[in-house]
Design a protein around this nucleic acid. Sequence first.
DNA 1: TGATAACCGAGACGGTACGTCATGTCTTCTA
DNA 2: TAGAAGACATGACGTACCGTCTCGGTTATCA
Lengths: 203, 203, 203, 203
Amino acid sequence: MGDVTESGERRHHGNRYGRSENARRAVLHAVDDLLVEVGFARLTMEGIAAKAGVGKQTVYRWWPSKVDILLEALGDDLVEELSPPDTGDLRKDLCAHLAAIASFLTTADAGAVFRTLLGQAQHDPDLARLLREDHIRGQHARDRLPLERAVARGELPSDVDLDSAVEQLVGPIHYRVLVTGAPVPPEFTDGLVERYLREHQPE
Amino acid sequence: MGDVTESGERRHHGNRYGRSENARRAVLHAVDDLLVEVGFARLTMEGIAAKAGVGKQTVYRWWPSKVDILLEALGDDLVEELSPPDTGDLRKDLCAHLAAIASFLTTADAGAVFRTLLGQAQHDPDLARLLREDHIRGQHARDRLPLERAVARGELPSDVDLDSAVEQLVGPIHYRVLVTGAPVPPEFTDGLVERYLREHQPE
Amino acid sequence: MGDVTESGERRHHGNRYGRSENARRAVLHAVDDLLVEVGFARLTMEGIAAKAGVGKQTVYRWWPSKVDILLEALGDDLVEELSPPDTGDLRKDLCAHLAAIASFLTTADAGAVFRTLLGQAQHDPDLARLLREDHIRGQHARDRLPLERAVARGELPSDVDLDSAVEQLVGPIHYRVLVTGAPVPPEFTDGLVERYLREHQPE
Amino acid sequence: MGDVTESGERRHHGNRYGRSENARRAVLHAVDDLLVEVGFARLTMEGIAAKAGVGKQTVYRWWPSKVDILLEALGDDLVEELSPPDTGDLRKDLCAHLAAIASFLTTADAGAVFRTLLGQAQHDPDLARLLREDHIRGQHARDRLPLERAVARGELPSDVDLDSAVEQLVGPIHYRVLVTGAPVPPEFTDGLVERYLREHQPE
DNA sequence: TGATAACCGAGACGGTACGTCATGTCTTCTA
DNA sequence: TAGAAGACATGACGTACCGTCTCGGTTATCA
């Protein structure tokens, strides 16, 4: 009490007991803005620091490279934007979730970050590991949720391979987004769901 | 890239005494070597020229950037390594072809080049266009071939959507390779084929 | 003929067979200007390059550090400004020469460069060596000239130690300039000459 | 610097109950060590603080810059090492004193500090002023002492210009040390004394 | 006898300059 | 006249210090 007297917002210049939260936030916002403004190739540590109004050393102190900043900027965006609904109806849940994935990957800002990171991960094994451990593994678990719930409800037989199911459902979406560049409309994702249900759902 | 359009025989670049073909080959070899030695991130025009024993100007004269060199170095590798067999049996053809795709993407040198280019294409729309026009479109056509032949033979009904079929077959493979990093053993690709045939092949 | 068509002044971008004379001159002028404008402490390689309109790499390619640029900028200034006259009269020659030295050290732009270099040489043995070999040794020889001529003319006995004479004449000037900071008016330098002549000139 | 003006006993810096004296001593020792270890150019406030085991703020609290620390580290070294003897014989006093000056400037650790500061003073007017006021003026007075005593004893006529005498005696020494880098053996300093006495001492 | 006020170490902060590397352009000489 | 060599202007790299700041801890008098 007494030293936050100014405006509720703490002015922090850093000290040995902790980094500056202001600087951290400024960098993460700057990297988000710049990725959209200039693209990944022209995204530089120097530009990030300048945009954030922060010293370069401060950026390097906390992040080894621009992909590490992007990784942190991605944050919990996948969790927030790609958690499947739970309506009690497998078809509905899957259709909504796959459409959300398609929309995230093709139009969301955070999706652009994610695609960029996936791209870099193709020739950066360290990034690949981090990305998989921190985000993709978790996303896979979220992608399974509607199916697990359906099994619990008896909508799906209990012996189906849910991991394979996820791959069959989201694989074609990623293939279009990352490889062919074809659009991913709801009809396409709905089709994936229909096909899956036709095959696995007991009549 | 794109200058093999004339006569099947590569147009002769360069000085009228004919040394540019040497330079071209030297550059393409250098880029292949360097990609393995130092990785994409540390692959530079400067380094390529030095390794090839060629002037920088010569490199810039024929290729605007390192990805263009890679694109040309990729050459006809997809055609050569990923043309499906034609045994007269759909199951055999598909299993062999999908296994070849998996192996190409995960272990072949040319596959590493392809994955790198796919990665860069995630934030380089020009590269994305070139890659799709010159390679991915053609590969998609090759991926359809076994199915087209099966339709012709009556192994498949004539109304099946072959493009969708390709996406369902190769999508999960790309998903594993590009996203989750999970291994792609023959059992996995065979499973994809089985599932497809179970659904579409009239008994 | 034919490629100096523009303005008599050659635009030169450098090539393997020689450096750009334009760049060299621009850097030397820039360093002279900046030393006066901002002083030695705030003279930077970066600032020199910017002022000269030249890339930093070009500066580093030809000069290891700012003192090396100053050394080259000093050029033949000592020769040009501190070559003693030869009037045939020892008193006149010495008075004029010592006054020139005093003026050079205290007021000339080139004198500021020289004093700066002398200052740095106090803690930079490499610079000290260069400075002495390239400039101070030669200046000492020039300082001796009036005395040598006087010996030849018979104005001075042939057995006087001319090196000592130079030290006694110019030592006190440098002492005032470099150590005490006292002004060095003509009366002072004339006094040094008088004292020397009183002691050595046969009546 | 300059806060020894009060009572001969150093005013107590810092925490009003007295720990700063430790820090002060640690800094002065560190700067002495570092000057020898790494040289003036690579002597930094950061390095001094680290070597002294002291916070940077503590260094900045008491000294604005590294030259100020050196100035304080120089302390009373000139007084201690360059106070002339008083044997009652002018020749002896001068010979001993000039030899001491030469030795101090060329070989003593404190002499290196002094030469470095003189060097910096060539392009730092503030330092030049401090150095002259705090040390050089006093040294000049000490350099006069043997001559003043000789006048008092009648060894020298009372009308000689003692300031000029000092300049003629020590000027050539400083010229050798600071400019030409020539050695300054006792023969040289003795010669200066002889020459002076020959000119001024009544037979 | 506890509050307090100045200093302590540590080190993060926004900066500037460092010296290096790669970019893409230009110029020269050689074959 | 293309090719190798490499200098050029540019600009980002990652590091070192600068001088300022904030932090939590340490005193030793004085209220």
